[in-house]
Structures are given as structure tokens and as C-alpha cells.
């Protein structure tokens, strides 16, 4: 499978990656090669095989529904790019 510049830009948008046409052109070749490479999977004998999500087929462990983590809001917000009054700041989303 081969991807062109507009397809790369579409995937970049879904991936939330800013990308101009020049950059998209640069990625198109490598991405096309990778998609062509993984097409080798088409020949695999996987009729009736269960997909494997975990190497040991372990199941999700459950724990009692109890509070275990302390409140560290100030510590975590100290490393944020922009906070005010205990809130994370982002550009206005509602006019």
C-alpha cells in the first residue's frame, strides 16, 4: 500500500500532529514502505487463531475500591506549562 501527501496529512490530523505539505511529502515514502512491509502478514496461516493481547494471557487484576493515592495536586501542577488558581490553562474553547 502506498500513501500520498494528502493521506499523510489526514493521518497526521488524526494523530494531532501539525504538518505542512513539505513535511508530509517527506513522510510519504517511509510510511508507504512500512505499510508495504507489514503486508507480509497477509500470507500468515491464522485461520481460527485467537488474537493474543498479553504474553501470559493474564487477566486484569482487580483491587478493592478504596482510595490509595494521596492528593498531590500542587506537586503535579508545579510542572505544568500554565496553571492558575489550581486549574490547567488552555486557549479559550468557548466564546
Amino acid at each position: 500500500m502506498s500513501v500520498d501527501t494528502s493521506e499523510v496529512r489526514r493521518i497526521a490530523h488524526l494523530s494531532r500532529l501539525a504538518m505542512n505539505d513539505d513535511q508530509a511529502r517527506d513522510f510519504a515514502g517511509g510510511l508507504s514502505d512500512i505499510f508495504a512491509f507489514v503486508e507480509q502478514l497477509d500470507g500468515a496461516a491464522i485461520e481460527g487463531v485467537e488474537p493474543m493481547a498479553h504474553p501470559l494471557d493474564a487477566e486484569q487484576r482487580l483491587r478493592p475500591d478504596a482510595v490509595t493515592e494521596p492528593d498531590r495536586r500542587e506537586t503535579y501542577q508545579a510542572i505544568a506549562p500554565a496553571v492558575e488558581g489550581g486549574l490547567y490553562l488552555v486557549p479559550r474553547v468557548i466564546e
Binding site: A12, L14, S15, L17, A18, M19, F27, L31, F35
Partner: peptide
């Protein structure tokens, strides 16, 4: 994300997406 990630990371994010 566009400025913070390098090309190989972007490539893999796009393949995965």
C-alpha cells in the same frame, strides 16, 4: 506535538493511528 516529537516518533504514531 508537531514541535515536541522527532520524525521517528511521529512516523510510528502515524502508523499506529
Amino acid at each position: 506535538r508537531g514541535e515536541g516529537f522527532g520524525d521517528e516518533v511521529k512516523r510510528r504514531i502515524m502508523v499506529g493511528t
